[in-house]
Design a protein around this nucleic acid. Structure first.
Length: 647
RNA sequence: GCUCACAUAGCUCAGUCGGCAGAGCGCAUCCUUGGUAAGGAUGAGGUCACCGGUUCGAUUCCGGUUGUGAGCUCCA
């Protein structure tokens, strides 16, 4: 007999019992998909290895959720094989929020095919086929997949070291090479949907054949699936490309070329405010702001090394007076030239050059995406030239600036990744051990001093130095690339820059490349989605709109508008002949923070009826009362209306 | 760049199994002067992305180009 315990309950089971028996013994419900045995997840069909304590795992646990989705991927593959037997199977893992399976199929899967496949999947689910694991010898596995004519499976099989048992899964007539884990039978999948098809290279390599990848998701009940689909819709509504058009923020013009952004007046004002804020904050923190050219001689890019390792992303040279010039893909060589233009003392350091530098990079056509992935963009770039002993303090300063900026925009959850050398391959990095160690330690201590949680990524460092990458979480829980801080030992060498130390000798400074917002395009594109287009008052292109109830109040409305405009607000007056309900709806759809309704009452009393886009009617107040509130809301860069806290 | 899909009015989208194109919103003019998410009427707007081919005839079918989307790969 085997003794199994769960919390304070115990059960005795015969030898050879499985966790399905454990499940029954403890009376667990059907939402239990896997078990945790001594801290390790096991599938329910596994035999109980001996006396142990167990914990049930449900859909809420990542391991169990992945197992369910992975099993759904197998159901998808089974359905495809039933409908299109000529199909060759690629791989089909679970992914965040769902699963996919790659197929080399004789037909192109379109919406009609997906529908048919989905129906077949539902049939397989209702058949409730047991999903059973088997371990076989490699030769046996080879035979199985040769018979089934599955070249991709055989390719994977051959990469498994000899002698290792091969794990395969069977459900009905379907067999897959798979290390699991899975749920016990196809009936466990209660709600599923296929979402889309896209091409995907076999094993992600563009030299390999392109397979058709079907994406889908599954849940334990229909409601959860429906909620997920609603969430997808909500994300779609926030799409910066849609909102950018609706709110007239920016466009990309076919006549102008792909990946090149046109900032319309309303988008431009948002950018201008953010840039002003950025400049002010940088000056405050000891940065000196510079402007540099858009092109430079090819030779400069040879010195910097870009011509060698970044060539694919750079536009072809243009010849000016018989000399070749390149459009800049980065700002660093320019800042270095400014640094180099004078003899620097150790007393001068750190020197921090900042620039909102517009760069151009060739991006393959298929990767372009709204404002988030473009070919011409403006980086909020800066380079800190410092002594090695200053590195840590400077990094703390950058982290401090980064967190201040992120929080100002309402990104209050973010994750830091520390990219360090691959300890196995130290020779592929430039710079000696000692310098690397100093730098990596400085980065890590800086993170600790700021009290930030971080994950260390060994081997993720670039060849020229370690880095911190910060990922930020937006209002709907998605992660975005945020600030990056990159230590560089390479460019100081290449440009042979130096400072004179206390000893009167030349020393090599370290360069920190850092960006806080990333690029104006990507950052503001992300902000549009983060705010769902409803920019806080300090950023809103139109902050308030004065709405007269009828034309009789036009004069008063215009007076109010003018007064607000003179006080520095971005304000409009709606003198249209429509009714007030219509004007309010229009202002709502434009996501204007404040609507100031003025009718005959307000005109007589010299007041405003204030309405906020999300709080609704806020009642009547004097203009100076409203202005005082608005001023505070703007000055404090509040994310929500000031009336929502004081009301 | 690759695979698949898509491209019709300023916007969102119908439509023509091949016979010189439609709605709603928006815009203009007029009527209406109204109190917190759509008052009414009239009107203007399109080389149906571009270039070729098939056809008596192409917005529709075919090929190419450009652009866009979902992904792959890459990335700020």
């Amino acid at each position: 007999m085997i003794q199994v315990s769960w919390q304070d309950e115990k059960a005795s089971l015969p030898e050879g019992a499985t966790f399905l028996d454990v499940k029954k013994a403890f009376g667990w419900k059907n939402d239990v998909l896997m078990v945790l045995v001594d801290g390790k997840p096991r599938e329910l069909r596994d035999k109980v290895p001996g006396d142990c304590s167990v914990e049930p795992l449900t859909f809420r646990d990542e391991a169990a959720r992945n197992a369910l989705r992975h099993s759904t991927a197998h159901i998808l593959a089974q359905a495809v094989k039933r409908l299109y037997p000529e199909t060759r199977l690629g791989i089909g893992p679970s992914i965040e929020d769902g699963f996919y399976y790659d197929f080399d199929a004789p037909v192109a899967f379109g919406p009609d095919e997906l529908e048919k496949i989905e129906e077949e999947m539902k049939r397989i689910i209702s058949e409730n086929e047991p999903i059973v694991r088997e371990f076989v010898e490699k030769a046996e596995a080879r035979k199985i997949f040769q018979e089934r004519n599955e070249p991709y499976k055989l390719e994977i099989l051959e990469e498994i070291p000899d002698g290792e048992p091969i794990s395969i899964y069977r459900q009905g007539e379907f067999v897959d090479l798979c290390s699991g884990p899975h749920v016990p039978s196809t009936g466990y999948v209660k709600a599923m949907k296929l979402l889309n098809v896209a091409g995907a290279y076999w094993r992600g390599n563009e030299k390999n054949p392109m397979l058709q990848r079907i994406y889908g998701t599954s849940f334990m009940d229909q409601k959860e699936l429906d909620d997920y689909l609603v969430r997808l819709e909500e994300i779609k509504k926030r799409d910066h490309r849609k909102l950018g058009k609706d709110l007239d923020l920016f466009s990309i013009e076919e006549e102008g070329g792909p990946g090149l952004v046109y900032w319309h007046p309303k988008g431009a004002i948002i950018r201008e405010i953010i840039e002003d804020f950025w400049r002010k904050e940088h000056r405050k923190r000891g940065y000196q702001l510079v402007y540099t050219p858009h092109i430079a001689k090819l030779d400069l890019w040879k010195v910097s090394g870009h011509w060698n390792w970044y060539k694919e992303n750079m536009y072809s040279p243009m010849v000016i007076d018989e000399v070749e010039y390149l459009l800049k893909p980065m700002n660093c060589p320019f800042h270095i030239l400014i640094f180099k233009g004078d003899t620097r003392s150790y007393r001068d350091l750190p020197i921090k050059y900042g620039e909102l530098g517009t760069v151009y990079r060739y991006e393959r056509s298929g990767v372009l995406h709204g404002m988030l992935r473009v070919r011409g963009f403006t980086q909020d770039d800066a380079h800190i030239f410092c002594r090695p002993d200053q590195l840590e303090d400077e990094l703390v300063g950058v982290l401090d600036l980064a967190s201040f900026m992120l929080e100002t925009f309402g990104y209050d959850e973010y994750y830091c990744m520390l990219s360090v050398r691959d300890p196995e391959n130290k020779e592929k990095y430039i710079g000696d051990d000692e310098v690397w160690e100093t730098a990596e330690n400085a980065l890590e201590r800086a993170l600790q001093r700021k009290g930030l949680n971080y994950k260390i990524d060994p081997g993720e460092a670039k060849f020229y130095g370690p880095a911190i990458d910060i990922k930020v979480k937006d209002a709907v829980g998605r992660l975005w690339q945020g600030p990056t801080i990159q230590v560089d030992f390479n460019l100081p060498e290449r440009f042979d820059i130096s400072y004179i130390g206390e000893d009167g000798e030349k020393h090599r400074p370290v360069i920190i490349h850092r960006t806080v917002l990333g690029t104006m395009e990507r950052f503001i594109g992300g902000l549009i989605e983060h705010y769902a287009g409803a920019f806080p008052l300090w950023l809103a292109p139109v902050q308030m709109r004065v709405i007269p109830v009828s034309e009789k109040q036009s004069d008063y409305a215009q007076k109010v508008t003018e007064s607000l405009r003179n006080q520095g607000y971005r304000v409009e007056c709606d003198l249209g002949s429509e009714k007030i309900g219509y004007k309010i709806r229009k202002a709502q759809l434009e996501k204007i923070p404040y609507m100031l309704v003025v009718g005959s009452r307000e005109r007589e009393e010299g007041t405003l009826s204030v309405r906020h886009r999300s709080l609704g009617d806020l009642g009547t107040m004097r203009l100076d009362e409203f202005v005082e509130k608005a001023r505070e809301e703007v000055e404090k860069k509040l994310l929500d209306s000031i009336f929502s806290v004081t009301r």
